[in-house]
Design a protein around this nucleic acid. Structure first.
Length: 405
DNA sequence: TCTGGGGTCCTAGGACCC
DNA sequence: TCTGGGGTCCTAGGACCC
C-alpha cells in the first residue's frame, strides 16, 4: 500500500491532500484537543490552519509514514520527529491510529482474497500473492490482474497500492518499488541484468544497514557487483548461510513459498519513557509502567488465545544499549500476575545502575490456549505441546538449505 | 536532532543427556 | 589422565523487516 498510514489519514482529512503530512509521535497525541474543539463538525471541515504542526512537537517520537509531499523535504520513515521538524517545520503532524489502519488493512486484504486466495501477510500494509492458479492471471504477464487488484482495492477503500509482478518473492518485492505510488511493474528472469543488477545492494529485502556497510567495504555497491563475486568468495566473507543466500539473491533466485497461514511466535509490549528513568530514583513510576506492560501482554494473549512458557524483559539504556533477560517456566502462563512474577525475576538479573529509556515485556514459546486446556487430562499430549515440535530436522538447517525443501 | 513498537529469524555458548 | 560425537533446550544478543 502506498504511504499507508498517511493515506488512511487523508481519507478522514481530505483537506490535507497535497500538503506535507507526517504520522508519528505516539502517546503525546497532538490532535485530541483539536478533535474536541471541532466535535460539532465533520472531520473533513476542520480548518487546515488549525492542525498541529511538526515544528511544535517536543518528544521522542519517530515518523512512521510521511505523505509523498512531505518526502520531498527529505523526511521519511523512522526519522526522529525533532529532526524532521528542522527539515519541514510546516508539515502537519498526526498521531498514529493503529486501530483505524488495521480496519483498512483487513478491508484491502479481503478484497485481495476474494480475487486471489493464496496470500501471505507481511504486516499491515503489504502482502505476497501467488496468482499462478488464478484464472486469467497470466494475461499481459500479470498486468491485467494487477490492474484489477488496484481498481478493486481503490473502489473498496479509496487507497492506492503498488504491485510488483515477478517469478518469486524476492523479485516481486523489488519490482513493487519501481513504480510508486499506484504503479505496476513486471520483472521477468530475463530482466535481471537490466533492471536488478544496477540497483544498490540495500534494495534486496534482507540486506540491511550492517550487511550493506560490509559489502561496501568490499567494494560491492550494486547487486550486479554482488553477482560478479564467486560463491566461495561470498562464503568466506559472509559464512555458509548468509553467503549462499547473498549469492542466490544476486542471481534473482528465491524458492520461498507464499505462506498463507502461520502461528505467532511471541507477543510483547514495550514503551519508551518521556524521560530517562532510574531503577532506584524512579522506582514507583517504573513499577507502575512494568505492571501495565505485563497486563497489556496478558490481554493480548487472552484476546488472541495463547499461553506462553517463556517470559522475558527488555531494557534500553540511555546510551541505547539493549539488555534482555528471559526465563522459561515449567508450565505456560497467560495472566498478568504470573507474567509480572516471572518478568520481575528477569529484571533482577539485569544491571540497573544506568538510566533507561525503554522497558519491554515479552512472552514467547506460545501454545494455543485451547489446545493447552484440552490437554489438561492427557500428560502425553501436554508433554508434546511443551516441546517445540515438528520438522525440527528441517528447521535446524541453514535457511538456504531449508529453502530447498 | 538523539533515534517507536511489534515482530521473525539466526548465531553461539553452555548445560545436560545418551 | 585425557578424551568421542551426537542431540535438545535454554539464554543473550543482534540483524532485519513493516
Amino acid at each position: 500500500m502506498d504511504a499507508f498510514y498517511a493515506s488512511v489519514e487523508l481519507l478522514r482529512y481530505p483537506q490535507l491532500k497535497g500538503l506535507p503530512v507526517v504520522i508519528g509521535g505516539g502517546r503525546r497525541a497532538p490532535d485530541d484537543e483539536l478533535l474536541a474543539r471541532y466535535a460539532h463538525l465533520p472531520l473533513c471541515q476542520i480548518p487546515v490552519a488549525d492542525f498541529p504542526l511538526l515544528k511544535d512537537y517536543t518528544g521522542r517520537g519517530v515518523i512512521t509514514t510521511a505523505t509523498y509531499a512531505a518526502r520531498q523535504f527529505g523526511v521519511g520513515s523512522a526519522m526522529g520527529l525533532m529532526k524532521a521538524a528542522k527539515l519541514c517545520p510546516q508539515a502537519v503532524l498526526l498521531p498514529v491510529d493503529f486501530a483505524e489502519y488495521r480496519r483498512f488493512s483487513r478491508a484491502f486484504k479481503e478484497v485481495i482474497l476474494s480475487i486471489a486466495p493464496v496470500m501471505e501477510n507481511r504486516g499491515v500494509d503489504e502482502v505476497y500473492i501467488d496468482f499462478s492458479d488464478v484464472a486469467g492471471g497470466q494475461r499481459e504477464g500479470g498486468r491485467v490482474l494487477a490492474r484489477l487488484l488496484q481498481k478493486t482495492i481503490f473502489e473498496a477503500t479509496g487507497l492506492t497500492c503498488s504491485v510488483g509482478v515477478a517469478p518469486n518473492k524476492l523479485l516481486a518485492k523489488m519490482a513493487s518499488e519501481f513504480n510508486k505510488p499506484n504503479g505496476i511493474s513486471i520483472v521477468q528472469v530475463e530482466d535481471l541484468q537490466t533492471l536488478i543488477w544496477p540497483l544498490a545492494c540495500r534494495k534486496v529485502n534482507g540486506i540491511g544497514p550492517k550487511a550493506d556497510e560490509k559489502l561496501k567495504k568490499l567494494g560491492i555497491e550494486t547487486i550486479g557487483d554482488l553477482a560478479a563475486k564467486s560463491l566461495p568468495q561470498l562464503l568466506q566473507w559472509f559464512g555458509k548461510s548468509y553467503g549462499h543466500w547473498l549469492h542466490e539473491s544476486a542471481w534473482g533466485r528465491d524458492e520461498r513459498a507464499v505462506v498463507t497461514e502461520s502461528e505467532p511466535v511471541s507477543m510483547s509490549r514495550e514503551t519508551t519513557f518521556e524521560r530517562d528513568l532510574h531503577a532506584v530514583h524512579d522506582r514507583a513510576e517504573l513499577g507502575a509502567i512494568f505492571t501495565d506492560l505485563c497486563e497489556r501482554v496478558a490481554e493480548d494473549l487472552q484476546r488472541k488465545g495463547y499461553v506462553g512458557r517463556t517470559v522475558g524483559i527488555k531494557l534500553r539504556y540511555d546510551d541505547f544499549k539493549i539488555a534482555t533477560r528471559d526465563q522459561t517456566l515449567a508450565l505456560p502462563v497467560q495472566d498478568a500476575a504470573a507474567i509480572r512474577q516471572a518478568a520481575g525475576q528477569c529484571l533482577k538479573r539485569v544491571p540497573l545502575g544506568k538510566r533507561m529509556r525503554l522497558l519491554g515485556v515479552k512472552v514467547s514459546g506460545l501454545i494455543s490456549a485451547q489446545a493447552w486446556q484440552a490437554s489438561a487430562d492427557d500428560p502425553v499430549a501436554r508433554e508434546s505441546l511443551l516441546r517445540p515440535q515438528v520438522l525440527t530436522s528441517i528447521k535446524n538447517l541453514d535457511p538456504y538449505t531449508a529453502s530447498l525443501f
